[in-house]
């Protein structure tokens, strides 16, 4: 009886936390459905809901274009990051070579450098390559992710070396071992990494803001910021755009939630 009561209290507590977590989303939905004159007058839903903000979003600005820009940049960057980070992580986890420890330390130490410090030299480099205002400037520098390399290194270290040796004995090439043996084994980490990398790219603001100059190349975060100026704010469209922009991340999380949780907890309990 007491156990059931405790469970009920636990559930109620969870429901309460879920409601609190959802309040900003509900507020966002309500704000996106408000007419401009009601925008600030009602905390949540106004009595006259309107789809005008969504209509304006697709007719007054090139919202679909911005979505496609973001999808292209985020997806391509994630694929590149996944490939190169896992490849490097595999090398650091399973190959023995001279300077491996120093190299790992060096790579990890780069994570300590704030991004702002490298902003000016990175910009100059990109300019010299002629990549300002192109997607190359977003994709190439982000193709290798030290955090991802470290993540995969840790995950691949738990793959039995005997498995790799057996594959080698069976005639697998080194790339086949990586692709057909190692990667399926660390699938949960792949899911977790894809989600983390996608979120990072999807929400990335400062670097694209500096690099992209033409509005037709803007990614969603930059396009949405353009709606808030000093003298003119299009809050309704901003809310509608923000609501639509968080949907892909939510959908991706629903697809990958099992892998994400498994990826994050892998290694948490040692067998």
């Amino acid at each position: 009886m007491i156990l059931q009561a405790l469970r009920l209290v636990g559930w109620l507590l969870l429901v309460l936390i879920a409601i609190v977590t959802f309040v900003p989303m509900i507020w966002l939905l309500a704000a996106s459905l408000k007419a401009p004159e009601d925008l600030f007058s009602y905390t949540f839903f106004s009595p006259n809901p309107s789809m005008k903000n969504f209509y304006d979003l697709f007719t007054q600005v090139e919202f679909l274009r911005y979505v496609m820009n973001s999808v292209f940049v985020a997806c391509t960057a994630v694929v590149l990051q996944l490939f190169f980070s896992s490849l490097a992580g595999y090398a650091l986890a399973k190959y023995e070579f001279k300077g491996k420890y120093v190299l790992t330390l060096f790579m990890l130490s780069t994570m300590l450098i704030p991004g702002q410090v490298t902003l000016a030299p990175a910009y100059e480099l990109i300019y010299r390559f002629g990549w300002v205002d192109t997607y190359w400037a977003l994709l190439v520098p982000s193709a290798v992710n030290v955090f991802g390399i470290f993540l995969f290194r840790q995950a691949i270290m738990s793959v039995p070396t005997e498995l790799i040796h057996s594959a080698r004995v069976d005639g697998c090439s080194e790339f086949q071992i990586y692709w057909q043996i190692v990667m399926p084994t660390v699938r949960p980490m792949v899911g977790a990494f894809v989600l983390i990398a996608f979120m990072g790219q999807w929400n990335s603001f400062l670097w694209p803001q500096i690099i992209l100059h033409s509005s037709e190349r803007f990614t969603l975060p930059i396009a949405l910021t353009q709606m808030v100026g000093i003298y003119q704010q299009q809050y309704g469209m901003l809310m509608a755009g923000t609501l639509l922009s968080v949907l892909p991340v939510m959908v991706l999380f629903l697809f990958l939630q099992r892998e994400f949780v498994a990826g994050l907890t892998s290694g948490a309990v040692k067998g």
């Binding site: 902003l119 000016a120 910009y123 100059e124 300019y127 803001q209 500096i210 509005s215 930059i222 910021t225």
Partner: peptide, 22 residues
């Protein structure tokens, strides 16, 4: 004429001035 978000003008312009480019 390019509309650059308020938050970006300073960072983009500083970066352009420092590197003397674009």
């Amino acid at each position: 004429i390019q509309i650059v978000a308020w938050e970006a003008v300073t960072s983009r312009l500083q970066a352009a001035f420092w590197s003397g480019l674009d």
